[in-house]
Amino acid sequence: MPGEPFPVDAAIARAVRAAGRVSSPYGTRPWRFVVLERRVGVKLDPDRVLRVADPHGQGARVACGATVYALRLVLAVTGWSSSVAVLPDRRDPDLVAEVRVGPRHRTTAEERSLALAVERGGGNRWPVLRRAVPEPARAALAKAARLEGARLHLIEDPDDQATVAAVIRRADFLRSRDDEYRAELRARQAREEGTYGLDTIGGGPEPLLAVLTTPTDTTVDQVIAGQALQRVLLEADIAGLAVSLLPRPVELPQTRSALHTTTGATPHAVLRIGFGHGSGPAPRRAGSEPGRAVTGFSPLG
């Protein structure tokens, strides 16, 4: 009947399908979902972590955090509350987080809007036009990050804009000279769709650059950053904005340090935000793997 929640099994299945469509830098999708009764484990898949681009797996754990937000959101719109435990089993460090289904939940209008965006594929990834982002949209993006425990630094000061743009160009230059990185990327692109997360920055003014940060850089911070990033991307989609993720500046120690100096916090993502050439999410390659669900997982507690 109207207003009744989905059965738990159906809600979890829908949430896992939606989470599997979350975007990740380089299209790695470095996660596995492990389902047992009313719990969904989000596990890091070491075989899908890039050895050169992400040697310590920080970016992969941020990507796993993004799926955690998608799981929570879709459970909410199917009528169920949820809670999150980060690193719930010390014996299994690849178990990044566990989403636990709670009591029934009354879905909000905001959750419905965000869920429509996540089920479309998680954001508008068309190329960004050089057109200013209005203040209400900027405020909504900053609020989205804040609600998930992170901070989205909108780079509005001209000196900071020049600094961050220089950091991005420096990261692009260093990566362009890294033969191992380029070989890894070619191998990845041979197997996966598109070039998500590979945008560079050109000359001239940018519509909006932003840096997503947390105070420190623990696994908990990385999962928080991923959830905040996903919510920001969905809010941008609702506002009709396109977002390009620029992973290189947060991958390299020297450029990551420069971003830390500018923002005063640990950077997890650099975003280039504006209005796109198209509407809705950019198309994905036909037959791309949306996610891999495994049953039979039993965590501690």
Rank of each mutant, 00 (worst) to 15 (best):
L233D: 08
I273Y: 00
P247T: 07
Q230Y: 03
V243I: 10
A236D: 06
T261N: 05
I238N: 12
R256D: 12
G274L: 14
L234G: 11
L234I: 11
P249R: 05
L259R: 01
D237E: 15
Q227W: 08
Q230R: 09
H260T: 13
V243R: 01
T266C: 06
Q254A: 14
P253L: 07
L259P: 15
E235T: 11
T261E: 15
E251H: 06
L246K: 02
L234F: 11
F275T: 10
L246W: 04
Q227H: 07
S257Y: 09
V243M: 03
L259T: 05
G240L: 06
A258P: 02
E251R: 02
V232E: 08
T255E: 08
P253R: 10
A239L: 01
R256M: 05
A242W: 03
L259W: 01
A265R: 11
Q230N: 14
T262C: 13
L245S: 12
Q254P: 04
P253V: 03
A269C: 02
A269Y: 07
T266D: 09
L241Q: 04
V243F: 07
L246A: 07
G276V: 05
L271H: 12
D237S: 13
A239Y: 00
L229K: 00
S244E: 11
V232R: 03
G276Q: 06
Q227M: 15
L245P: 09
L229F: 01
A236R: 02
T263C: 15
L271C: 09
L241G: 08
A258F: 04
T262W: 13
L241Y: 00
L246V: 06
T255G: 04
G264L: 14
F275L: 11
L233H: 01
T263R: 13
E251M: 01
R272N: 05
